[in-house]
Design a protein around this nucleic acid. Structure first.
Length: 937
RNA sequence: GGGUCUGUAGCUCAGCUGGUUAGAGCGCACCCCUGAUAAGGGUGAGGUCGGCCGUUCAAAUCGGCCCAGACCCA
């Protein structure tokens, strides 16, 4: 038997089937580094329209987790896709470097500032620690394949950034938006500092729950207001923080709520207690009242300004009205201490109540106070309750477990405490109102982001930006020692300070002798030592980064972060930008969800369902991680598990092998010399290119709309359906058996070349490593990197007058499916094995005949059967069922003809040439004749 | 407890303004190939569209309630 295999053009490529990503990706990174690729891309894109995605700085602490990966990869996909779309899309990564978590880490190492080390040394340690963290995270971000200016990122602790944060504060002061206030803030007793809202978390806590009677000073006044006769009426409040009672200034009731006077005996003593009607039964039971009498109901508003006696202090407090009062629990009468609660503070302001804050920074009550003087708040509940008992004002006492704010670092309960703090006023110059207007100008993705942002801005309180901490950008103000007013020359002073900070960092402020700047005035002013909330640092990067770096612009085109940042960075950025320049710092905001496990639960160490990104790229490769991120709809929760990564790896292989097959069939193809002109290409090949062109349009639209999971779906389906299941299967015969340089084969290679070119770029934003590998294996002249190109412009559609248009080929695919089905049935009946052992007869009506006749003799190459004959539908054997294609029945029988040793088709003309007894006529001409002609497939 | 979301085959996703037997790819089962071979081709089985109640001639698509989950807030 002659070996005809040598006469075939079998596929060959060095592009490996096995990706070996975990090993190859680091090599690729090194190659990119040596190419100085990020800079090369910038050069190539110079002068093109800009697209600025501004990086929200991750906090410089800890190794990166899967959430970081999602965030950075989504950004990278967008930046790269914008590059292919023809934009100059720089990416300057950043880090958030000041703040509490770093202080905590450093405290564990060197002890608290001011105790074991001085503040200056402590800050140096913080700076060193943050720098180290930045390097660690940077290494991982680079490993993910994220392109950016990694040699020159922005750090909020860079001296110039610190200086510009100070300048940003200066602008806020200039606008008159900085105010000093005495307000209740979350106060951590262990931090001895105010906490940002983000630093507070809720946990269950056991607390005493007491009911306390506030007796009316004048029972006659009570009766006059309510029409209820009473000897010694008292309003009852319910509280879980007895220690705040010394600061009580009022009792709040709801104006529209119904209240009643409960009369009865408690342990033999008569009581006359005012509670909300809705809670009266509960209350009576809780108090163990006997012989209960209940008065007619009256509205809360009639009690307004009724004078009450403080339960254990010599103080008279009024009844006030508040919409915040609820009847969910308690009594409907609310203990009000403006120094210890937000609602209380607001009501207190309306009624001119005193903001009493008897607790000092260290959590200890001021000396000399009755009952609690000198006591720590954590030890004050007992004495307060005793005092109530003695005064007979304690009506009930039990213990409850409830959700209570805790410090996210110390995990200890925090308190509300009024302290002197610096605020950015939301009302100043209508800041909040203006910001709400700006929200409307922004494109939110998903669109509900707007509603969420608006909701959060609706009742936004003033922003407390001061922190009594060590590692942060200082609030660089000199305030009058008497009036606490900032120095009248503050704008100039702040710029002076900023210049020094630019040279020496924030230490310049802490070491500054006020006399240097103030001269003789230094006596009258003191330096503020508070530092800024870190949200101010990151919130002003639109100024300290976007406005400073020449390659960036304000507003940015896009901010992209997790959906928690509606309250975080998106908001701090919006507020400061609106305050400083009257406009939002971004044109668009995109948010992604958080990861959950297969049960839909969040990732946490305690649940043990955490997947480390490092593990993923070490085992499967960064491209698999990237593909997972792209394949998941980021708008909702993103489910992640080992199992899902396994599935993603499976689909990765499909895409990779499709590319590999394209490349292997480009063996011996030089596009410059061998490409066939579009008009000379075979119909099927032109169709394949046209489908690719169509797909490219879709993919571009999907990339532009940030719909990456759809990009993935379309890309994968194209590889599996149009290519694997149809085109590539069909062209194998022609590729392998026709003459090496025949039009039939070169036409196909031309199509494969165009598709491979396009495919590498389609996947490049997502599968960056693999795309570069494909690009590397492409024949012909090419750029040093796929990322130095834009979308492939070598694709072309079908001619407008094409006989075989897209609809035609769609019908052909349906016919092929019908044939497949008939073959499969025959195979199951054990009549057939391989497709090419089959002869197919297609019984067709006139319509289908008109369709299929256009392919002439080449129909059998499409059906991949040895013959494909057309017969009238009416002559079909009775037992044949109609196929899924109307007007078509398919009969498949084993071919009676001998198998050609070369092309494996079963043909009657095998041995037609005596010199080649084992092969068919077609193969003879392909082996030593002029070669067969193909027109369609 | 409040705000904003999510819930379609084992998995990842389509299903537009309500209208024939709810689709795709993967996975799975079975078959084929051995000239893409730790690949490739084919056929097939999988769905109470989270649940309940409504509106409607008609709902995965509209409304209400409930359940589960996420983020934010209290």
């Amino acid at each position: 038997m002659t070996d005809y295999k040598a006469t075939l053009n079998l596929p060959h490529t060095d592009f490996p089937m096995k990706a070996g990503l975990s090993k190859r990706e680091p090599e690729r990174l090194e190659q990119w580094r040596q190419l100085d690729l990020y800079r090369r891309i910038r050069e190539a894109a110079a002068g093109r329209p800009k697209f600025v995605l501004h990086d929200g700085p991750p906090y410089a602490n800890g190794s990166i987790h899967i959430g970081h990966s999602i965030n950075k990869v989504l950004k990278d996909v967008i930046v790269k896709a914008r590059g292919f779309e023809g934009f100059d899309a720089p990416y300057v990564p950043g880090w958030d470097c000041h703040g509490l978590p770093i202080e905590h880490k450093v405290e564990q190492k060197v002890g608290k500032a001011g105790h074991k080390v001085d503040a200056r040394t402590f800050r140096e340690e913080c700076r060193a620690y943050a720098a180290e963290q930045v390097e660690g995270q940077k290494k991982d971000f680079i490993r993910l394949g994220v392109f950016g200016d990694w040699d020159n990122p922005y750090l909020t602790m860079n001296y110039d950034t610190e200086a510009n944060i100070v300048r940003a504060l200066g602008q806020i002061v200039d606008k008159g938006l900085l105010t000093k206030g005495f307000k209740p803030v979350h106060w951590c007793l262990d931090c001895a500092s105010a906490l940002a809202e983000a630093e507070v978390e809720y946990q269950d806590k056991k607390s005493p729950a007491i009911d306390v009677a506030f007796a009316a000073v004048d029972p006659a006044d009570f009766t006059a207001r309510t029409g209820v006769e009473a000897g010694a009426p008292a309003l009852v409040i319910w509280t879980t923080t007895p220690w705040t009672l010394p600061a009580n200034q009022a009792v709040a009731v709801h104006p529209e709520e119904d209240y009643v006077l409960l009369g009865g005996d408690q342990d033999g003593q008569p009581r006359e207690l005012v509670v909300a009607e809705a809670l009266a039964d509960d209350a009576a039971e809780r108090y163990g009242l006997e012989n209960v009498r209940r008065s007619a109901a009256f509205k809360g508003q009639v009690l307004e300004s009724l004078s009450l006696r403080h339960p254990f202090l010599d103080r008279r407090v009024p009844v006030v009205l508040g919409e915040h009062v609820t009847t969910d629990a308690g009594t409907g009468c609310v203990h009000t201490a403006p120094g210890h609660g937000e609602d209380d503070f607001v009501v207190g302001k309306r009624y001119g109540l005193e903001v009493d804050s008897p607790v000092q920074d260290n959590g200890v009550f001021r000396d000399g106070l009755p009952v609690v003087g000198g006591l720590h708040v954590n030890k004050a509940n007992g004495p307060v309750i005793e005092a109530l008992q003695e005064g007979g004002t304690l009506v009930a006492k039990k213990s409850i477990t409830h959700s209570y704010p805790h410090c996210w670092r110390h995990k200890t309960p925090i308190i509300f405490r009024a302290t002197a703090q610096w605020f950015i006023s939301m009302g100043g110059h209508g800041l909040l109102e203006r910001a709400r207007e700006e929200v409307k100008t922004v494109t939110w993705t998903p669109d509900w982001g707007q509603a969420r942002m608006e909701g959060m801005l609706r009742d936004r309180p003033d922003w407390c930006i001061s922190r009594q901490r060590t590692w942060g950008v200082p609030i660089t103000l000199f305030v009058d020692k008497d009036s606490s007013e900032p120095h009248p020359d503050t704008p100039r002073l702040i710029e002076e300070v900023a210049k020094r900070v630019e040279q020496e960092g924030i230490e310049a402020w802490f070491q500054l002798d006020p006399a240097e700047l103030l001269g003789e005035d230094a006596e009258r002013y003191s330096k503020v030592t508070d530092v800024l909330d870190v949200w101010f640092d990151s919130g002003t990067t639109h100024f300290s980064v976007l406005e400073q770096r020449p390659e960036l612009t304000v507003p940015a085109d896009l901010y992209l972060e997790g959906s928690d940042q509606h309250r975080g960075w998106f908001q701090s950025s919006l507020l400061t930008s609106t305050a400083m320049r009257g406009a939002a710092p971004y044109k668009g905001v995109l948010t992604h969800g958080f990861t959950v496990d297969e049960q839909g639960r969040k990732m946490s160490k305690s649940l043990g369902n955490v997947i480390a990104p490092q593990e993923v790229w070490n085992e499967l490769g960064a491209d698999i991680l990237r593909l997972w991120i792209a394949s998941t709809d980021y708008r909702g929760e993103m489910t992640v598990s080992k199992n899902i990564f396994k599935q993603v790896a499976d689909s990765y292989r499909r895409i990779r092998n499709t590319a590999r097959f394209l490349l292997s069939n480009l063996n011996g193809f030089d596009p410059a010399a061998n490409a066939v002109a579009p008009d000379d290409m075979l119909a099927l090949d032109r169709w394949a290119v046209a489908r690719a062109a169509q797909l490219q349009d879709e993919l571009r639209e999907l990339y532009n709309g940030y719909q990456f999971h759809q990009v993935y779906q379309r890309l994968h389906n194209f590889c599996a359906n149009e290519l694997g299941g149809f085109y590539l299967d069909i062209i194998k015969d022609r590729q392998y058996t026709s003459r090496g340089d025949s039009v039939a084969r070169r036409s196909c290679q031309t199509a494969l070349y165009h598709i491979a070119q396009a495919l590498a770029r389609w996947m490049a934003p997502i599968l960056s490593f693999t795309a570069e590998e494909i690009h590397e294996h492409l024949p012909g002249d090419k750029a040093d990197s796929v990322f130095l190109t834009t979308w492939y412009d070598g694709l072309f559609g079908l001619p407008a007058d094409a006989d075989m248009d897209l609809a035609f080929w769609e019908r052909i695919q349906a016919v092929k499916q019908a044939v497949n089905k008939a073959i499969e049935e025959a195979r199951n009946r054990k009549e057939l094995r391989a497709n090419l052992t089959a002869d197919a007869t297609l019984y067709v009506d006139d319509q289908v005949r008109a369709l299929l006749e256009r392919l002439g003799d080449e129909l059998r190459f499409v059906t991949i059967t040895s013959t494909a004959a057309l017969e009238p539908l009416a002559t079909a054997p009775a037992e044949l069922e109609e196929s899924a294609v109307a007007g078509l029945k398919v009969k498949v029988v084993p071919s009676p003809n001998p198998k050609c040793a070369r092309c494996w088709h079963h043909r009657a003309d095998v041995g037609v040439d005596p010199a080649h007894p084992e092969i068919c006529g077609r193969c003879v001409t392909n082996v030593e004749g002029p070669g067969e002609e193909r027109h369609y497939a």
